[in-house]
């Protein structure tokens, strides 16, 4: 696995804390592995929770309509890049 970049470390912690993933260590999340399904095993309930945490932490609302939702959540890296582009705080 490639190393986590600084924002990826922060987002990994946000994911683990928000979703109470008791058996996941944030540093162990492969930044290029899928977050949903086979990878970290997240689902749509998590996506809603995560969207709320992201809006509170980074000051913008996630949208699925105007972008490819599957792409945004495809990996920790993709999600972190999306946050980097849209964050207001």
């Amino acid at each position: 696995m490639t190393a986590q970049l600084p924002l990826e470390q922060e987002v990994a912690r946000l994911i683990v804390d928000t979703l109470n993933l008791e058996d996941v260590v944030p540093e162990d999340i492969d930044p290029e592995a899928p977050l949903f399904g086979e990878g970290l095993g997240l689902d749509s309930i998590d996506a809603l929770e995560l969207a709320l945490a992201i809006s509170r932490t980074y000051g913008f609302q996630l949208r699925a309509d105007d972008a490819n939702n599957a792409q945004i959540f495809s990996s920790l890296r993709a999600l972190s890049q999306h946050i980097e582009r849209h964050r207001t705080q």
């Binding site: 749509s44 996506a47 809603l48 969207a51 609302q61 996630l62 949208r63 699925a64 309509d65 939702n69």
Partner: peptide
């Protein structure tokens, strides 16, 4: 449609 996130 089937909007997902609140902003959608």
């Amino acid at each position: 449609g089937r909007p997902f996130f609140p902003a959608d």
